[in-house]
Amino acid sequence: MTLKSFRTISALTIAILALASCASFPHLPGDRNLLTDVTSPGVSREAVLMKLGEPSSSFESGRILTYRIGEDADGYFLMDRMVRWSNTKYSVVFVFDSNGHLQKYKMIPVR
């Protein structure tokens, strides 16, 4: 194996390690109570939007909202969909009834 090949292998190995374990995106500090107030049955859509802000997607005229959530040692934090699924641990789905009250929600692990 040539020296050049060895260098290539080393560079690739370092790059993979960096991507796999060290790469991260800036985010707000984690908050263990981020979802506490907005996951009680009957909470309004407005309350969810006021607490979590713009959802990453919505369906059926806003009846179903989704958010991307990351998690660190301090708790949960919101992730921007621009970074695709990097640092995102859960997709949280909120389903509201016809009166705009929370009917069900689920945290789906995506990573």
Partner: peptide
């Protein structure tokens, strides 16, 4: 659609008419 979203989470893409 609701059941699929609750099982798999947010999709990566969706058509405009869902």
């Amino acid at each position: 659609r609701e059941e699929v979203l609750l099982d798999l989470g947010e999709p990566d893409r969706s058509s405009l008419d869902e």
